[in-house]
Write a protein that binds this DNA or RNA. Structure first.
Lengths: 237, 237
DNA sequence: ACTCTGCTAGTGGCCTAGCCTCCTAGACTC
DNA sequence: GAGTCTAGGAGGCTAGGCCACTAGCAGAGT
């Protein structure tokens, strides 16, 4: 994984920064040394010297690895390996952020449609109230000139809740971080917030009537519209 | 989300590092200023002065936010907001890394059992060959004193492939990063690699015979055993 | 012998100061 | 008006230093 490999989309022409290269080197090091979870890495001073960089830069690389959950840096002790990383997987996951979007949307589609159907079958009165409240919030935001982002998230959260499926909720959690990116892009387009609001009302109606098919179809239509954003068309092309 | 909230499990008594606190402050700042994707943050020098920290520390915080996909730091230009983060969600996701493990295992269980059943129905001859090859790899690794980590991953990858379900494969991708953590812990325990190898053979047999129930049950038993590691018992308690 | 305590070497945390490279807006030239 | 040049400001990175914390060990006390 060298500098040349980075030019995925049209953007991101910036050169790889030192801390990024360092991460790769450190991952290689972990691999070569056969370090296992719980093992300690050499001291910052040693690593910095070994790789020929300053401690400040090395610290950046360690922060990055810590954020990724690879190591745990402990004051006075050192950096402890949390899990044995597969370097290729880890780095590709970082770099392909954008090109993964289409597949993420596909996964979102599947899960959220299923959630809508389940919600229609399992929703309690409280769930319905939460869904209505979310719609009200979004309507209020739009009325005040906003994009309705808060209400949008709230709505999808309420649907997830109403489905009463821990595992699927789980899935949505993992997807949600990336979904938020597309959702905001979409709501930013002229007229989109109003359209989404109407779609939400249709979905809610299906859930209220306890009709899984209607709810699922409404959700599918909604997602098809929302997913049609420039960001995606770029990534897919 | 202040320092006091951090004491989730029994571990992690270490004080929040400055860069972590800084991340929160920066996220708040983004929120207060109402910055949208594409907007630029103030310069490092300004931010460092404003928050009363050195540029080096600020740089660490920026690296962390970059790894999380919140910003894109460009040489000569500045830090550009990539997406509008929901601070609470983002930070909880970081801190709860460990406490999420039981639910992750639950999700893994559901998906992988389903994958095994699908594989039994849909596998091609090539899929079977890949599964057998993975088992051979793992056997070889164990014979040479290894823990069979490579073969283990390969096996589960082959199962996923044989299920011929893009979306579920997707799900496994998102879960796999965290799963690897538990898988390695498990294989590290004495005698575990051999047990896992036998379990793999049983699963493969079910898939070969085209029996979804047998394959699914074998996978379920396998996961139940593998999931029983100290890391999890700690987190659950 | 055992336990407890205090010390100390080594670790990460953070800062200051500085120089380099890179980007870009605006002045300048044609 | 279009292209070119340049200076200011942005991040990238280094060097060196001091402080806070951890853990292990030596010695005092039992």
């Amino acid at each position: 994984m060298t500098e040349q490999d980075r030019g995925h989309g049209p953007r991101r022409v910036t050169r790889a920064r030192l801390y990024e290269q360092l991460m790769e080197r450190i991952l290689e090091f972990i691999d070569e040394e056969g370090l296992a979870p719980g093992d300690r890495l050499p001291s910052e001073r040693d690593l910095a010297e070994q790789f020929g960089v300053s401690r400040a830069t090395l610290a950046q690389a360690l922060v990055a690895l810590e954020v990724l959950g690879v190591i745990d840096v402990r004051h006075g002790t050192g950096a402890v390996l949390v899990y044995r990383p597969n370097a290729t997987t880890l780095l590709r996951q970082l770099n392909d952020h954008r090109s993964l979007l289409p597949e993420i949307v596909e996964a979102r589609s599947t899960v959220e449609v299923k959630l809508a159907a389940l919600a229609a079958e399992r929703r309690t009165e409280q769930d319905l109230a939460a869904i209505d409240a979310a719609i009200e919030v979004m309507a209020g935001e739009i009325e005040q000139g906003g994009r309705g982002v808060g209400g949008d998230e709230r709505f999808h959260g309420a649907i997830t809740q109403a489905a009463h499926s821990g595992v699927l909720a789980q899935m949505m959690d993992f997807l949600s971080e990336r979904i938020r990116e597309t959702r905001i892009e979409s709501l930013g387009q002229p007229g989109r917030p109003e359209v989404s609001l109407e779609a939400h009302r249709a979905i809610a109606e299906g859930i209220r009537r306890g009709d899984p098919d209607e709810a699922a179809q409404a959700m599918q239509r909604h997602i098809d519209v929302v997913s049609d954003v420039p960001l995606l068309r770029d990534a897919a092309g």
